[in-house]
């Protein structure tokens, strides 16, 4: 079990998870645990705010993709906002742009998720 603390807030139907500065295996597992708890509580729309995140690695991103698949099975979705240019490029290379919504900020993401 991960000991890393991941901030989560809820805005309407959407849980907003704030990613840490480095999304590696350990912190991605912590995000995954938070999301599992949210899914068990009936949440199906998750937005990961990447404002504090400067680096990711492929192991951490692979764990995030697994979260996307679980949410998809529940009829939900995972989205990201405030990605750095390099993290957005990394996500594109790994195919996340086809699996998750990408938004410039929380407001844009929440509006899009509310309209969906």
């Amino acid at each position: 079990m991960s000991t890393e603390s991941i901030p989560v807030t809820v805005n309407g139907k959407v849980a907003i998870v704030t990613a840490p500065g480095y999304v590696n295996e350990k912190s991605a597992e912590a995000i995954s645990e938070e999301c599992s708890g949210l899914i068990n509580d009936g949440v199906s729309l998750v937005l990961i705010d990447m404002r504090d995140c400067r680096m990711v690695n492929s192991v951490g991103v692979a764990i995030i993709i697994e979260i996307i698949e679980v949410l998809d099975e529940q009829g939900g979705s995972l989205s990201f906002c405030r990605l750095s240019e390099t993290i957005a490029k990394t996500f594109q290379i790994m195919g996340l742009k086809e699996l998750a919504g990408m938004y410039s900020d929380q407001e844009e993401a929440l509006a899009a998720l509310a309209a969906a």
């Binding site: 492929s58 192991v59 991103v61 692979a62 764990i63 993709i65 697994e66 390099t86 490029k89 990394t90 290379i93 790994m94």
Partner: peptide, 13 residues
């Protein structure tokens, strides 16, 4: 499987 992207990312970045 989701892992195994390291070499691809290095080449692309």
């Amino acid at each position: 499987e989701k892992r195994g992207w390291g070499l691809t990312l290095i080449a692309e970045l």
